[in-house]
């Protein structure tokens, strides 16, 4: 199961598993949000490389408008993947609990 929605502070909240089957859902949602700033990953268990593609696209869009994406509450697995992908140099990644 993968869920994506807007939080009360205008942050985007993702929960569940973001695999290749769920990317269209995520992309559609992200495209419909005017200027995403913060993505809360506290409830996200898993992200695949296709899921990374979603972030990359959002980030390019955000940077074009002068705003980067902040990923908060990422678990270890997700942080590792972002690190392997070199995304830690592009996104501001805040681990869970800080």
């Amino acid at each position: 199961m993968f869920e994506i929605r807007m939080g009360e502070q205008g942050e985007i909240i993702m929960t569940g598993r973001l695999d290749a089957a769920q990317c269209d859902k995520a992309l559609q949602f992200m495209d419909g949000v005017p200027a995403p700033r913060v993505v809360d990953l506290a409830g996200l268990d898993y992200v695949s490389s296709a899921g990374l593609g979603v972030r990359l696209k959002s980030q390019k869009r955000g940077m074009a408008s002068g705003q980067g994406l902040r990923l908060v509450n990422a678990n270890k697995h997700i942080r590792d993947i972002f690190k392997y992908a070199g995304f830690d140099r592009i996104f501001e990644i805040v681990p869970a609990g800080s």
């Binding site: 695949s48 490389s49 296709a50 990374l52 593609g53 990359l56 696209k57 980030q59 390019k60 940077m63 392997y84 992908a85 592009i90």
Partner: peptide, 12 residues
């Protein structure tokens, strides 16, 4: 980032 594409990333 501006020079990177999503493709190929997964296999990397």
């Amino acid at each position: 980032l501006s020079e990177r594409q999503a493709g190929g990333l997964g296999l990397h």
